[in-house]
Amino acid sequence: MNERTEHAMNSIPEGGRQEIYDAVVIGGGAAGLSGALTLGRARRSVLVVDAGHPRNAPADGVHAYLGREGTPPGELLAAGRAEVRGYGGEFITAAATGAERDGGVFRVFLSDGSDLRARRLLVTTGVVDELPDVPGLADLWGSDVLHCPYCHGWEVRDRAIGILGTGPLAVHQALLWRQWSADVTLFVHTMDEPDEDQYEELAARGVSVVIGEVASLETRDGRLLGVRLASGTLIRRHVLAVATKMTAGAELLASLGLEPTDLEMAGAVIGSRIAADPTGATDVPGVWVAGNVTSPTDQVVAAAAAGVRAGAAINADLIAEETRRAVAERRAPFSAHLEREVCEVVLGDRRHGL
């Protein structure tokens, strides 16, 4: 058992799991932990189910996160887990394989064969990055093969950067990365060749264009050496920027009737997402989403903020439910609440033996 699993399991109280949690959070990244922290501070019982495969694990650090700039992803998550535990949050290392509504609560089924019950669900299962099929590319993902200039641009500034053209957004991508380096080359690869206006824009910004399909990436000592074309030509590059297809990790949600929708940018489908309102509420009452599963292009800080919003919305929804029940109990004839009030009025201090 590794340290992560040990800590996760140790956060379950000795008496075992609760029968019903106020909320179960599925996914222990920035969005899930922020939601759990918000709910814990609201005095809610929370359990986080985390399979332990964060999207940004290969990255050297989290960037553009005020106060946390450059923090290694694992360190940020460890700090977040400790904070959630400080407010009574619990953890279990497992994958959630499905969920269903069971009366007024949800049952969540886990990969170890067990299940959990919760009044509300917050799903923060992120996305899966589907990489272009180029030999050698996957081995360098997160180090010399990158996708987001706002996440990694500063760290590779002024280096020789290549752009792998796989769709209509490649020209935009090349012009964007040009902000961080004067040495940018667009490899047309499988995209349509740029039109005259695009060629002019690229030329004006000093971006080189290479026609021909990329056959593989060449490495030396584990680092990118260059891009090998199908013609055999090797063009040296330090970094290759790619566009991944970002597929929502929504298998669990399908069991609740929630299916992902296409995510488009400039008319091109770049991935999928689970639709939700600004608080993260989905079309299924009681189910919220936050982070990349609903907003795949968000950076870590935005995912964390979305988790806070969803956590607050879930707490407000629980309060509304509890208030409705309290009013119904108060209005019900011969209710326990009414009986207590009558006793107080009729018996007064005598009820307490005074």
Rank of each mutant, 00 (worst) to 15 (best):
H63M: 13
R223Q: 10
R107I: 00
E193H: 11
A276C: 14
S231C: 05
V293D: 05
E259Q: 14
V62Y: 00
A160V: 01
V327W: 05
L176Y: 10
E344T: 10
A203S: 15
V123A: 06
R43N: 13
L140N: 11
T71N: 03
W154E: 05
P285M: 04
F187H: 10
D197W: 04
S231H: 12
S181E: 12
F109R: 06
R220P: 00
P135H: 06
R101D: 11
V209R: 05
R351F: 11
L37R: 00
A336W: 07
Q173D: 14
V207A: 11
Q18G: 11
A51D: 08
E322S: 11
L164N: 12
G15E: 14
L175H: 06
E3W: 13
A310W: 08
S34G: 12
L131Y: 08
M265S: 12
L33G: 07
V293R: 05
L186P: 09
G67C: 12
G89A: 06
E251H: 05
L33I: 09
V207G: 09
S216G: 08
G257T: 04
D102F: 03
G28K: 03
A275C: 01
V145M: 05
S255D: 14
S114A: 09
A99K: 01
T247A: 10
G104E: 15
T219K: 12
D50K: 02
A275S: 14
I26A: 07
V46D: 05
L258E: 08
T297R: 02
E339A: 14
L140D: 05
D317I: 07
R17F: 15
Y87S: 10
E155K: 02
R309Y: 13
I26F: 12
R237Y: 05
F106I: 07
A316V: 04
L76S: 00
T294S: 15
Y21D: 08
A59T: 03
R331L: 15
G15M: 07
G29M: 00
G29T: 04
I270L: 09
S231I: 03
